[in-house]
């Protein structure tokens, strides 16, 4: 599959943007400026970027409690995202959602739902609407590995499969559901096998390899767009941070984490771009510097923004 240089560099930019955004969010959290929790996407950047770069603007994603990466990969504005994390009126959700519910409807979202698996039925419904109206749009719900044991997931895959709906179910295997290793919650090792129960393709891909994810996602998306039905796409990676920032991680060894960190998708992709002569050191350094400045600006914007006016506490409950 031919991927343009422009697209390739945009992938790199978005991956770096996710990483820098998460590091900045964790930093704010550690300085006591973030209410609640930060569920960082560090280590999984290639998954969101590979999938979302294969989508059109009018395709829709459904996120989870760990969706900073999905939003950025789909093109969301980091200023409005950071403001949301700090509960500011200028945030995407006007401070009503916070980190777990950041959703940028302007870049194609069905919301970020923090009950595991909840985005699956919602994406199925959006895809049903696309089919009823004869539109060639695709709905993409993201779930972590632990989501594949929920009723949401099984019901949703089944319903999408019987109606050949345009859905790409992205199952991001980061190996842990909070503290529980996927090998303790699923009998099978290859989660893509579950697609067989629903008579749909199941594809398993290296989730540290953005180009592999992109290619697999592109095929699944095109299949869905052609009206041939859903695909289960399993991206295999690892959650480098704890379940949330500052979580003690008593259930895994540091050595295990260090071993997985060697697979970091960002240096890997960076080396690839250099080795293949796609970009020069200077170009990549420039992208990194631009992104760092963007995130610093986002933090400043978020910090300087006001919280919602208490008089608006009852807004947005009913349309």
């Amino acid at each position: 599959m031919e991927i343009s240089r422009e697209t390739t560099l945009e992938m790199y930019r978005r991956m770096v943007r996710i990483r820098e955004f998460e590091l900045a969010a964790i930093d704010l959290f550690k300085r006591g400026m973030v209410k609640g929790a930060i569920h960082a996407y560090i280590g999984q950047e290639a998954s969101a970027v590979g999938v979302c770069m294969a989508l059109r603007h009018d395709d829709l994603i459904a996120g989870t409690h760990r969706s900073h990466g999905h939003n950025i990969a789909k093109g969301a504005d980091t200023k409005k995202m950071m403001a949301e994390i700090l509960g500011k009126e200028t945030g995407y959700c006007k401070g009503r959602g916070g980190s777990m519910h950041i959703a940028a409807f302007e870049t194609g979202s069905l919301g970020a739902l923090a009950v595991v698996g909840a985005g699956i039925p919602i994406a199925v419904g959006a895809a049903l609407a696309f089919k009823l109206r004869g539109e060639d749009r695709v709905a993409v719900p993201f779930t972590g590995d632990a989501g594949c044991n929920t009723g949401n997931w099984h019901e949703g895959l089944n319903m999408a499969s019987i109606w050949d709906l345009p859905v790409v179910f992205v199952l991001e295997n980061n190996q842990y559901g909070v503290s529980t290793r996927i090998t303790n919650s699923c009998k099978i090792k290859d989660l893509s096998l579950r697609a067989q129960s629903y008579g749909i393709p199941g594809v398993r891909v290296d989730g540290f390899d953005v180009l592999a994810v992109y290619q697999a996602a592109k095929e699944a998306v095109e299949r869905a767009r052609r009206g041939e039905g859903p695909t289960l796409l399993v991206t295999e990676s690892y959650r480098f941070e704890g379940h949330y920032a500052g979580e003690p991680e008593v259930y895994r060894d540091r050595a295990e984490v260090q071993e997985w960190r060697k697979k970091d998708p960002i240096p890997r992709f960076r080396n690839y771009l250099l080795e293949e002569g796609i970009a020069s050191e200077g170009e990549l350094a420039a992208i990194e510097a631009e992104v760092r400045q963007e995130i610093a600006d986002a933090v400043k914007f978020a910090q300087e923004s006001p919280q919602p006016d208490p008089a608006t506490a009852m807004d947005y409950i009913y349309a």
Partner: peptide, 13 residues
């Protein structure tokens, strides 16, 4: 669950 959830998704679009 998915009857209700699919209704939500369709309504959102």
């Amino acid at each position: 669950n998915t009857i209700a959830g699919a209704a939500i998704g369709a309504a959102l679009v």
